[in-house]
Design a protein around this nucleic acid. Structure first.
Lengths: 339, 339
DNA sequence: GTGAAAGCGCTAACAT
DNA sequence: ATGTTAGCGCTTTCAC
């Protein structure tokens, strides 16, 4: 085989072949193929080139183009966990769409949280001359930045590293918590329990702050007795149901959809109806859960797609990147039937 | 900026720089950097090169290497839906790991099922000289192959196209159905209901065939009265519970985990316990659901990671590709507490 | 053992 | 309006 690609049709058609067939020079071919602005090309030559391209099935070699032009068409995305959750998939999706829109292609690498794999991945991306790297985690948290990331432009997605100087884009946990609470408030609830996670994280503090802010903005003080720390899973929600019921709350804001799922079980066992007896609000909008619980779960969405897209935009400079503090992406409410 | 990449450190370090510093020729540098087999390089020159590389922070330009060597380091993955489901993410993950293992990099594109986007994606991959393309769908089905896929080596993943001549790799639905049923049989059940989907698909026919085969292999005839067609969602499972209970079945094999989730609700409402009164078996192993229902759901896993990995292996020729009929990947049982 | 030189497919001055 | 030519960074004969 003479060159890369085309494992099928054998010989690769190059610009030279087109030039020869069209009876022009490669420069001319280059100009018409790329529809160059200052292109003084005769109507006729232009036509002949197009015909030749058609006839030969010519396809420009993007790699050669890149090498020659000195500008990369790649954006790297390194993710810690692609598999564990649907979330990473959404980040990829958003990043890919946005990259595409700007003429870039996504190179993805999964590191499984393994440092060696991570360094390999970054090295490989650097060798492929990526325009920059999106470094993402599957849940919002603080990280320590791999040294090699500093060798190119990088944007932190769904994570941040204070003092690293790297721009970051993360979900607005506080606004999310506020929004969730406001949804409950708007439905008339006044005693709203909050099942927060036991895991220290931006989600833990942010959502709590939002819950509190919403309450106070409505003139309803913050009652610590209504806040419970639970394991961020079904089990946690299930186990906390007793406390919620005893507290006299008419609504629960759950740290995430899985906790809400557990609460559903707990409530059902007690013969309590959702939302009539107790309204339930989730967080995350994990589709498989939220859209299919009975009744369907009202929740607040984690904007993964947007995180990926915004990351690309910041990287390419179409959105300015706030250098000091992470860019916040809103968590919109998703109204279903549990409130 | 002189060339691609390195948006940070300005001037790119090339092999020439290394050669100059080491006092050797670029050919020598190339040889030692790539640790070439027939490399007649003096101990000393070798050392000097390594030092220069170190000192300059030299990183080979993978694109130039590709162009020059005429072999691509890319494998394209085009997926119809990355976002909708956790599944696509697993295919990406498997493909990425395996590609990586063989020195390839994954280029991903999402088409949202849009034909134009699909053609663009394929064209772009072809222009980037991909070694080949993995064309994947998020659920197992028959497809019609985009014309342009024939211009390179392609493997169909989680889908197939009879008569297209394209190798495919798909889950073994029949074995999966058999396995699920056998799990129930092994637990002593003799009346096993099957809640199949209403949607015509390889999953529908395959799982049914497997169910039937398992029953017959045990000498238990196939009772059509125990098979019900339901919408492949919670709602479908929930609605079918009455029928299951009336049928006198002591176990249900559900077309997928979501149906099982609905059955859980239906059973619970009737005060029936899982698995004591009725055992439940799912299919898909959707983590968010299966691992967190109460009790946790025994199910059969759709091998998405393996599909992606096997696709890459077939593409690269490390696994021989059966040309006529799709390569079947096993769906292993995942035992939890509902059986 | 090591180096010179001819590409790989394309772009971009610079000629003509 | 079109062609010539020199690279882009690297690999790879083939000489020395």
């Amino acid at each position: 085989m003479s060159t890369a690609g085309n494992g099928k049709h054998g010989a690769t058609v190059t610009m030279r072949d087109v030039a020869k067939l069209a009876g022009v020079s490669v420069a001319t071919v280059s100009h018409v193929v790329n529809d160059k602005p200052g292109a003084r090309i005769g109507k006729d030559a232009r036509r002949r080139v197009h015909e030749a391209v058609e006839q030969l099935g010519y396809r420009p070699n993007a790699l050669a183009k890149t090498l020659s032009r000195g500008t990369s068409p790649f954006i790297g995305l390194v993710a810690d966990e692609i598999a564990t959750t649907p979330f990473a998939g959404q980040i990829i999706h958003g990043a890919q769409d946005e990259a595409w829109k700007h003429g870039y292609v996504l190179l993805v690498a999964n590191t499984d949280g393994n440092v060696a794999a991570e360094n390999d991945a970054i090295a490989m991306m650097l060798e492929h001359q990526v325009r920059g790297i999106l470094y993402s985690t599957w849940y919002h948290r603080e990280i320590v930045v791999p040294e090699s990331l500093h060798q190119t432009d990088t944007i932190l997605v769904d994570c941040f590293a204070d003092g690293s100087g790297l721009p970051a884009v993360v979900p607005d946990e506080e606004q999310g918590g506020r929004t969730a609470t406001e949804e409950l408030l708007a439905a008339g609830h006044r005693r709203i329990a909050f099942l927060n996670t036991t895991t220290p994280s931006p989600a833990q503090t942010g959502r709590l702050a939002g819950y509190r802010a919403a309450l106070e903005a409505t003139g309803l003080g913050f009652d610590p007795g209504l806040v419970l720390s639970v394991a961020p899973e079904q089990e946690g929600g299930y186990a906390a149901t007793a406390h919620v019921v005893e507290s006299g709350a008419t609504a629960v804001f759950c740290h995430n959809d899985r906790v809400a799922m557990g609460v559903y079980d707990g409530l059902r066992e007690r013969g309590l109806r959702i939302p009539d007896d107790v309204a339930v609000m989730g967080f995350d909008n994990q589709d498989v859960i939220a859209a299919h619980l009975r009744p369907t779960l009202s929740t607040v969405a984690l904007p993964h797609y947007e995180l990926g897209a915004a990351g690309v935009r910041m990287l390419l400079g179409v959105d300015a990147a706030p250098d000091d503090t992470p860019r916040l992406i809103a968590c919109p409410p998703v109204r279903r039937r549990s409130v």
